[in-house]
Design a protein around this nucleic acid. Structure first.
Lengths: 274, 274
DNA sequence: TCATTCATGTTAATATATGTTTATATTGAA
DNA sequence: TTCAATATAAACATATATTAACATGAATGA
């Protein structure tokens, strides 16, 4: 840009210009900045250190980038991209069980996240959840009220647990709950890999009038550490079409309703990230 | 897009672009990425390793695919930049009032976000907050336990409010609370632009043994809609050095302790930038 | 005036990023 | 299943960036 008497700039103005420049151009190397302002690399580093402390720029090795926003983001590792399609199917089925004005309870799983995404199309919905990704997905959505359960933020997954969560659940009531299972056996027992989480899921189920389990076919005919409920006591299982007919029969002998996504067309392969 | 000198990209931006690319295109091979960015396959592998650790991409044999990402971003910067240096000072002073092992209550403001950032350096801290940005900032931090207050997620700002929040606050107790004020008058009255929020801040104050107000000098000698507390009943005001001596005196006649940050290197560089 | 403080530059020790080579692991076809 | 092709991880080497410690010189204030 215009070549000012840059060398005589005060530190404060130099830094201000630096931030401006980074905001405009996104990134710059220490050397380039040093050259541009006519000072040594060390001075630039010290500037960037200070600006980093202020949260005004983000330091990289060799330079800096603009800190354009404070971002609050939680990323999910969704291992099975292949199951994304199944989850979408399940979400679609779940949606048909929700009416305008309903209060919906969602546990913290990628399947319920898929449900949350589709919920945006309904009017006047209240969502109760302990999942921060779901909360963020629905943030700012005018037609959806998000009631976030309090609790302790877990270390590895962005959701809430503990006594506070439990106590809040006792005072809340939902019209319908969708709760994921890590495994379901042929007797309709629902399992979770963690006893603690399993316990909470049971509480969630108790706080809703209708309760549905959500699980893709890979979770079926298996078991995990902790059994937290049985499908007989719930209102049904929502699964994708790939459920084996044998397993389906077994569940049906226990009079467990199974909801499969309408055969439609499972949204052709061209779809990009869900 | 414009073909920049990609080879000179910093690792951080290279990775950022990689994630962007993967998000848009779903999948890419290591070789293609190496070619595109003009670095060796090994570098790409190391990048992907790091991004996988962050949960940003999913590694496949021969390449990588996008991880489903839920991101919740909001423009915070404009406000955050205002009085950034002052906020840093205030955060530093606040930090000196916290001991290892303390439970700290933080309201939802950019100043308390600055405190949260610095909290990472302490051991064994529990943070109680209704602010999602603070939760995000501290997510995954091993030395900090985050207790997120439940409640209704507000539409425009990412924090929690309402009956659930209030009820949780009644059952919690913190060693120390830092609560921001939108305005403070010469009698030590604390104001918020919203009665609802003001109410909640008062509850927060009641749930902590020690309570400090945080406000930069621009908030002083003013008033706003709702008065929710008076500094006489709290443990002090943390402010930056630019507080006017007149106002300081006024507060001191009410026996209100005022904590200013140690005169570091705030406004020497010309004094005007602010 | 002198001592002090601050911004800056210089140097050496350290850390980081990358590429190359080699051993090991994974994949897909016979 | 086995085998060949390819991908990966580990170990090293090198270039570059960063930090810390010290040195300089200008501005500040008694």
């Amino acid at each position: 840009m215009n070549e000012q008497p840059l060398a005589t700039l005060s530190p404060a103005s130099r830094r201000a210009k630096m931030v401006q420049w980074l905001d405009a151009n996104g990134e710059c190397s220490v050397d380039l900045l040093a050259d541009h302002f006519g000072v040594s690399g060390m001075t630039i580093r010290r500037d960037l250190q200070d600006l980093t402390d202020d949260g005004q720029v983000i330091r990289t090795h060799g330079g800096a980038t603009a800190a354009t926003r404070v971002s609050f983001e939680f990323r999910f590792l969704e291992r099975a991209r292949q199951q994304a399609e199944e989850k979408k199917q399940i979400a679609k089925t779940a949606l048909s069980l929700i009416s305008h004005g309903n209060t919906v309870m969602l546990d913290s799983s990628t399947t319920t996240l898929a449900i949350a995404r589709q919920l945006k199309t309904l009017n006047n919905i209240t969502v109760i959840t302990g999942s921060l990704p779901i909360a963020s997905e629905l943030f700012g959505q005018e037609n959806v009220t998000v009631l976030l359960l309090g609790g302790v933020l877990r270390q590895n997954t962005p959701d809430l647990m503990g006594a506070i969560t439990d106590s809040n659940l006792e005072n809340l009531r939902a019209d319908v709950a969708f709760i994921g299972a890590d495994a379901i056996d042929a007797q309709g027992n629902l399992y979770n890999v963690s006893a603690e989480i399993g316990c909470m899921l049971a509480r969630m189920a108790n706080a809703a009038t209708r309760v549905y389990a959500t699980a893709d076919h890979t979770k079926l005919d298996r078991h995990e550490l902790y059994r937290y409920a049985n499908l007989k006591d719930w209102d049904g299982l929502i699964c994708d079409e790939k459920i084996s007919s044998l397993f389906k029969q077994k569940l049906e002998t226990h009079k467990i309703p199974i909801m499969l996504s309408s055969t439609k067309k499972a949204q052709h392969a061209g779809g990009r990230c869900s």
